[in-house]
Amino acid sequence: MSDRTNEPDNPQEVHPAEQKPPQDQDAPGTTAETEPSPDHGEQTYEGHGRLEGRAALITGGDSGIGRAVAIAFSREGADVALTHVAKEREDAESTASLVQDAGRKALTLDGDLRDEDYAASLPRRVLDEFGRLDVLVLNAAYQQARDGIDTVETAEFDRVLKTNLYSQFWILRAALPHLQPGASIIITSSIQAAQPSPSLFDYAMTKAAQVALVKALAPELGEKGIRINAVAPGPVWTPLIPSTGWPGHVPEFGKDSPLGRPAQPAELAPAYVLLASDEASYISGAVVPVTGGQPF
């Protein structure tokens, strides 16, 4: 990276466009199996006290975008709780260690977001541990490449909707009575909400629904002093990609972006920090595209 005191970084080169070998993982993917390893900002993110003393819950905070956000939030001064499934325990513990290295409290919450009781219990568990809940990041998601709508079994369709939509409804319903004025809700949507791929039709459906949810709830929550927004990533190199079921597509992933490469999770984190912080006090009902130039 160049010295910012002399000249700005070229966004095409700030992260190298590394060749990614064909690879496949069972969902959910893990960081250890992802080659090359994503950059979550472990060595580069510097905090400036934007979230000092606050507490955040991040679903899917063990790896990928969720881990990058957890690192950034903790270095900005927030305690962080993160959800994960059993297979992701090693990733979750690694992320929790990074949060603690920043001098903040970490809480890992093992469970399946498709379980209503587990999902609905999360806000209370964060409140019991941290004494407050200021930022809710609904980030966890599931996607699989499809060969056509006629090949998708109901159980698979159900898995996508329960992970990406039902869990968010259950968590929001449980959290809202406890959120105070100044709280921020951030949903991870996707460019798929605006540019749906045929092979991800069910995932794209949920991402478009999340955009509708943000726009629908913003007026109601605004009256309570609570902001709700979405971040819409474009191609991002995370374990979700090699676990999507398209090993031959992985080497070309993100190369059709105007910047010629996929994002690294670290490049998404600043958008979440902004939306969580008081610097975004007049931003609500918005969708922030972080797409490398692909139109949203």
Score class of each variant (00 low, 15 high):
T151I: 04
A155W: 03
E156L: 06
D158R: 15
R159H: 14
R159V: 07
L161P: 00
N164E: 08
L165E: 00
W170D: 10
L172A: 04
A175K: 03
L176K: 01
P177R: 00
L179G: 03
L179V: 07
A183T: 05
S184Y: 00
I185Y: 00
I185G: 01
I186C: 04
S189E: 02
S189G: 09
S189C: 09
I191G: 04
Q195F: 02
S197F: 11
P198S: 03
Y203S: 05
T206P: 13
A208N: 07
Q210I: 07
A212S: 15
A216L: 09
P219L: 05
E220T: 15
L221N: 11
K224D: 07
K224V: 02
K224H: 15
I226Q: 02
I226P: 00
R227M: 01
A230G: 06
A230W: 01
V231F: 10
V231D: 08
A232G: 07
P233K: 08
W237N: 03
W237K: 02
T238W: 08
P239M: 08
L240F: 07
P242D: 06
P242A: 11
T244F: 03
W246R: 15
W246L: 15
G248N: 15
P251T: 13
P251Y: 12
P251V: 13
F253Q: 10
G254Q: 09
D256V: 12
P258Q: 03
P258E: 06
R261A: 10
P262M: 11
A263M: 14
A269W: 12
A271E: 12
A271C: 13
V273P: 01
V273S: 10
S277K: 06
E279K: 12
A280D: 04
S281A: 15
